[in-house]
Simulated assay, not measured.
Amino acid sequence: MKYLFMAVALLAASTVAHAKQRTVIEDLPKEIVDNSHVIMVEVAIADTAREKLAKIEAKAMEKRTDAGLPAYQPLAHDPATMPARPARDIYSTLPFEVMFPFVMQDVTRDWGLTEGKGTPIRLRITVETIKTADAAMAILISSADELAGKVDVLDATGEQSIGSFYVHVVNAHGGLAGLMMRGGGIREKLAQEFALESARILTGSTKKDWKKRVKAREKAQEQATTIAVATTASGPQ
């Protein structure tokens, strides 16, 4: 009974805190904001993040083996030259430097920066910090999943700088329930949140605006589905 009460106390005291800091270093030109599309994402890993990333990558490779997938071929590293984009449900089995560009492109497209819109841009991301929470520390005090780095926005050639900003995602977990709520796919969740913060800068949007964009996209998808169903039902004319 004593241990039951202790467990309940730990659950009650648990917390999950999300901190996402965006710092603009060099403002994007007004004509670029919400008027561009990402054609390439380059990822560089700083020495400050390399050791922690190696441990995280080992788990991703285990997932790939467990899924019965062949060893990843470095020749397919560049998303722009791959014959087809992988399904999102296997992102967790890809190396970070391959998975991250796909997530960045997916999210920016979800935000309306679709192919052909406005100015084509490249993103060069330098990851300075990446780590996952320490379970023991999270239960006793608190620990966090983190991903931080600088994003340089470049022109289509990659030669000219257009703007830059810094993103720092911190998801702190405290208590047993906090860890339970954390779930799996931590590496992908961090990449997703980093991409969301980047998209807000690229589109000049707020969370309120983002909700409007989501509703508009869902409405468009519903209309497209309705038209497709109606067309199928009517058959050839």
Rank of each mutant, 00 (worst) to 15 (best):
V16L: 05
V16M: 07
V16I: 10
A17E: 12
H18R: 13
K20D: 03
K20L: 15
K20Q: 08
T23C: 01
I25W: 01
L28W: 03
L28K: 12
P29E: 12
D34Q: 12
N35L: 06
S36M: 00
S36R: 07
M40R: 02
V41F: 09
V41I: 05
V41G: 07
E42G: 08
E42L: 11
I45H: 10
A46D: 15
A46W: 04
D47G: 06
T48A: 14
R50C: 09
E51F: 11
A54F: 01
E57I: 02
A58D: 01
M61S: 05
M61P: 01
M61A: 11
E62D: 00
E62Y: 02
K63H: 09
K63Q: 15
T65Y: 07
T65I: 03
A67S: 08
G68Q: 11
L69T: 08
L69Q: 12
P70Q: 13
Y72G: 00
P74T: 13
P74R: 00
A76Y: 08
A76H: 11
H77G: 09
D78I: 06
D78N: 09
D78A: 10
P79A: 06
P79M: 07
A80W: 03
A80N: 06
T81P: 05
A84I: 12
A84Y: 11
A84R: 02
R85P: 08
R85M: 09
P86E: 05
R88P: 07
D89P: 01
I90E: 06
T93L: 06
T93D: 06
P95F: 01
P95Y: 00
F96Q: 03
V98R: 00
V98T: 12
M99F: 14
V103T: 00
V103K: 11
V103L: 04
V107R: 13
V107K: 09
D110A: 14
D110K: 03
W111G: 11
T114R: 13
G116V: 07
G116L: 09
G118E: 05
T119P: 02
P120M: 11
I121H: 10
R122V: 08
L123D: 03
R124W: 12
I125M: 13
I125Q: 00
T126I: 02
T126A: 06
V127W: 04
